[in-house]
Design a protein around this nucleic acid. Structure first.
Length: 467
RNA sequence: UCCUCGGUAGCUCAACGGUGGAGCAUCCGGCUGUUAACCGGAGGGUUGCAGGUUCGAAUCCUGCCCGGGGAGCCA
């Protein structure tokens, strides 16, 4: 592989001739000619003093007359490659690095060296550099952009360190949830995406044509199916996309988002809250421990996250009203709590806050009323601190057939569509409870980002379907 | 659907009734340890669209289009 630096130069000349468009070169030489171990950047420290090959993209570059710095990104990390005027590169050839466009795909070979001045503590002393594909001028620059500009280029924005960090945390959240529930005997049961009718009857639904049966609707919750599954498997959950055709235009809403929905048979509303606080605490602590680097990249102040451990403070809806009245909110019994109200109440607490026992009139038809005060239901909302709002909504479900029938009528829901659901109350009905956790809201809170659209790889919003 | 803010160079913004500028990006040149590197030079504009007021409009008025933030709804 000697003479490879002239290889760079020739490629660049070729690029100039073609006005730097779409240069593809063969990467693999005849096997065995240069058999360097291909190393991922996150593992580079284990190869100190050895010659390795790194495959990636050019994230940034700097140079002076006799030294060039090439910052390479490979998905696992960032590594600086250095080239000097010396044995492997002369001054002219160093100059040619300046012409390699950002985000070009490259293969770099050299010796791994410990270097305090390099980002990450290690750098690659470059001996050979290959341009796999010379990028066109990269639209996302090193200085700031508007969110709109970046969202139009979401497919490229994913490469930036902040977005990379958020989605790595999301990955950690998802995997930790699965592990937590699996270890506790839960079975993953996938709910259908195409459904025949509204689960809760209130929110608007996305409608899709469905052969001779007319229309299907994209699922807005897997809960009713989870209730069926809980009667078969005891402890179940789904973690799946959810669709809401509401014209919500806020930082807390997406039209397509992912929701975790556990459901447990023989569990009451208190068991339900205990499961929620254990799950939330465990996931937060796992992210703090195993995704610390990502949180640092995001500049997340983790002091409040460190405090997230059971038990969470619990107040009733009526106690929440008292707090709001002291803060001079114009609210009266029977009103639902909006985002501003939730934030105002949660400000008094330094941990996630349960608000339970809401008026039945503002909640879904399937929620179990309190025996003493039947105008209240055995539900809970979990409000994240720092203004991130509701991340969980949960409740004990109605197990009595007659009561559920009555509720369907009151909510004017088509009974036919719910016959199967009523069956669950005909054949061995039991008290049972469950909840829904919004993955993007949770991830946004843990990451400390302002808008949940960055917490999903390709957000769907009312005015955005691209890319 | 409602409230509110905005649309000027490739990007982020300034100019707020009197000849459209800056930083970054791009191109050219310089620099031996850079960290969103730095220094010098060059090119780059139908000010979202349509109409109106005015001697004169990016700027004021009307309508439309597009987007941001928020409300409602909820995860």
């Amino acid at each position: 592989m000697r003479g490879s630096s002239s290889h760079v130069l020739s490629l660049l000349e070729e690029a100039e001739n073609k006005e730097r468009k779409h240069i593809m070169v063969h990467v693999m030489d005849s096997p065995g000619e240069n058999h360097l171990p291909r190393v991922y950047i996150q593992d580079a420290s284990g190869h100190e003093g050895k010659e390795v090959e790194v495959q990636g993209w050019l994230a940034n570059k700097r140079s002076s007359g006799k030294v060039a710095f090439l910052l390479i990104r490979d998905g696992t990390g960032l590594m600086q490659a250095t080239a000097f005027d010396g044995d492997y590169f002369n001054r002219d050839k160093l100059k040619s690095f300046k012409a390699v466009p950002l985000e070009s795909s490259v293969i770099a070979r050299g010796k791994v060296k410990r270097e305090e001045r390099a980002p990450g503590g290690y750098e690659l002393e470059l001996r050979d550099f290959r341009l796999l594909h010379a990028a066109e001028e990269y639209p996302i620059q090193k200085k700031e952009h508007s969110v709109d500009f970046l969202m139009e280029r979401r497919h490229l924005w994913l490469r930036s360190s902040s977005q990379h960090a958020v989605l790595r945390v999301r990955n950690r959240v998802m995997m930790t949830i699965h592990a937590f529930l699996q270890e506790r005997g839960f079975t993953l049961i996938d709910s259908p995406i195409l459904t025949p009718a509204a689960c809760e009857g209130t929110a608007s639904l996305f409608e899709v044509p469905y052969f001779d049966l007319g229309h299907a609707y994209l699922s807005q919750s897997g809960q009713l199916y989870m209730e069926a599954a809980a009667m078969a498997f005891g402890k179940v959950y789904c973690l799946a996309p959810t669709f809401r055709a509401e014209k919500s235009k806020t930082r807390r809403h997406l039209t397509e988002f992912w929701m975790l929905e556990p459901e447990v048979a023989f569990a009451d509303w208190v068991d339900n809250m205990e499961l929620q606080e254990k799950l939330v605490s465990h996931v937060v602590q796992e992210v703090l421990e195993k995704s610390r680097e990502e949180l640092e990249t995001l500049g997340r102040d983790t002091r409040l996250l460190e405090k997230v451990s059971p038990p969470f403070p619990r107040i009733t809806y009526e106690e929440a009203l008292e707090i709001l009245k002291k803060k001079e909110f114009p609210i009266s019994w029977g009103d639902d709590l909006g985002g501003d109200e939730e934030t105002a109440v949660s400000e008094d607490f330094d941990r996630p806050l349960f608000i339970h026992h809401y008026p039945a009139s503002v909640k879904a038809f399937y929620m179990q009323p309190d025996t003493e005060k039947p105008e209240l239901v055995l539900n809970d909302d979990l409000i994240a601190p720092e203004g991130y709002g509701e991340i969980i909504g949960g409740s004990q479900r109605i197990h009595d057939l007659a009561l559920l029938e009555q509720r369907l009528e009151e909510h004017r829901l088509p009974r036919e569509a719910f016959e199967w659901y009523l069956d669950l109350r005909r054949y061995g009905s039991v008290p049972h409870s469950g909840f829904g956790l919004g993955i993007e809201r949770f991830t946004a809170w843990v990451c400390g980002i302002q808008h949940i659209r960055e917490a999903i790889p390709f957000p769907r919003q009312i005015y955005r379907m691209y890319p």
